[in-house]
Each structure stands twice: as C-alpha cells, then as structure tokens.
C-alpha cells in the first residue's frame, strides 16, 4: 500500500515512541522498542532502526515475507498508529542512520524530561551502538489511539474503512 499522509506526519513529528512486534514458530510474539524510522521514496517500505541488543529479540523470527508490525504512539496526545507488513531485509546500521535518528530520540528524551520524567533513563538506551536497520513492506495501517471504536483501518486514499 501507499502509506497515508498521517504516517508521513509521524515521521516528521518529534514526540512519538515506537515499538515493533513479530512472530516466528513460537506461539508468542516478540515485542521491543525501536529508535527511529524512515519512509522510502516509494512510500510502500519503511526502514526502522534499533540497537542490536534489542534486535536480538526479533532476529530468530525473521524470514523473507514474515509478518512484522510497527506501532507509533505520541507521548503528548496518545495518537497511535500501527503498520502491519512483511519483513524484507536487515543490515548493520551505519553512522548516517545513527545521525538521522539520534536527534529524534534526543527530542523525545527532552520532551519526557520537560514532563518531569527521567527521559535519559527511559529512552537513552535506544542510542546504544551497534544498531540494526530493518526494512519492511507496509501492507495495512490502523488507528490505535485509545478511545472507543479504535482499531480501524486506513486505506490507501486516507479514508477509513
């Protein structure tokens, strides 16, 4: 699918925390935090970045085309979106990747700190190196904001189904 505008806005927003979940042969999903993501020029793929120490939780579940999801949630107003998709590839993160998401993670740390929390302790580990870059194909986008009726799908034309 072509990612809707709202996900492009999330990419540029400073206040989202990100999670990913996937599943292999084990009946239980794996679930971990993500440091940042970038939308590809085709608007159908994203690459997300996370420390290798967290990637280890996902790695054994990954195979070409396997199911993988990513969740974005605003720490300011709880707006949340989930992308369901398929794993395509992963590689070691590089310095360019790190420089891209470092500023975004620092922004979230600063926002948390301004809210009276210890932002560094909550999010600082996302800057641990080395990192991994995971690329996925985006199949569906859902609204996950906590409110009655949530969980609906956003289609390619940005209309809800």
């Amino acid at each position: 699918m072509i990612l809707p505008d709202i996900i492009k806005q999330v990419e540029n927003s400073p206040d989202y925390v990100i999670w990913t979940a996937n599943k292999g042969k084990n009946p239980i999903c794996d679930l971990t935090r993500v440091a940042g993501f970038i939308i590809h020029e085709d608007y159908e793929h994203i690459t997300f970045f996370l420390p290798r120490g967290l990637f280890r939780n996902l790695e054994s579940n990954l195979s070409k085309g396997s199911n993988i999801n990513i969740l974005f949630a605003s720490i300011k107003d709880f707006q949340s979106y989930q992308i369901k998709g398929n794993y395509e590839s992963h590689c070691d993160g590089n310095e360019e990747n790190f420089n891209f998401y470092k500023g975004k993670v620092r922004n979230v740390i600063d926002i948390m700190t301004s809210m009276g929390l210890n932002g560094q302790l909550i999010m600082g580990y996302l800057l641990e190196q080395p990192s991994v870059a995971v690329t996925m194909y985006c199949r569906e986008v859902y609204v996950q904001t906590p409110k009655p009726g949530t969980g609906y799908k956003i289609n390619d034309e940005n209309h809800v189904q």
Partner: peptide, 17 residues
C-alpha cells in the same frame, strides 16, 4: 504495550491501560 497474534500468525501491537 501488548502484542498478540492471530491463529494464522499475524501480530497485533497496541497500548493498554
């Protein structure tokens, strides 16, 4: 944060209260 999976292995991840 909670992650479930359907019978055919599709994950779903969301926040809970």
């Amino acid at each position: 944060t909670v992650a479930t999976a359907s019978a055919n292995g599709v994950p779903n991840v969301t926040y809970i209260s």
